[in-house]
Amino acid sequence: MIDLFIGRWPYVLTVVLMLIGLYGMLVKENFLKKLIGMNIFQSAIILFFIVHAFKWGATVPVYDHHLGDAVEAYINPIPHGLMLTAIVVSVATTGVGLALLVRIYRAFGTLEEPQVLERMQSRNRS
């Protein structure tokens, strides 16, 4: 168990972050908190890619005259490029989510899930 942890502790911590995010999304009852949880979860996934791209003894993927063409001298830049996109996507999702939350608040006057559901049902009954 310890061996698993030593070599891969960044992965383990990433997974911990993911679980925290998931906890926020599923357990928290406030819609805004759920959205915060979602943000954390997405950050954790981005972190996972970055951690994977990292190599010991390598440097940032910018050409360096001293290091030359050696591939192992640079960190793989492709995951970085992908994650730039992923961050934009996650911000866009957050934006849409927040816009929806404002609408929900206007309609129901609260962001607490149990109360919103209650008000939805009482309206359907009437």
Partner: peptide
């Protein structure tokens, strides 16, 4: 900061601004 520490400078800046 973590991204920058892990060598992903561009992602780090992006996250700082957007995230």
């Amino acid at each position: 900061l973590l991204y920058i520490a892990l060598g992903a400078v561009d992602v780090g800046f992006n996250e700082a601004v957007l995230g």
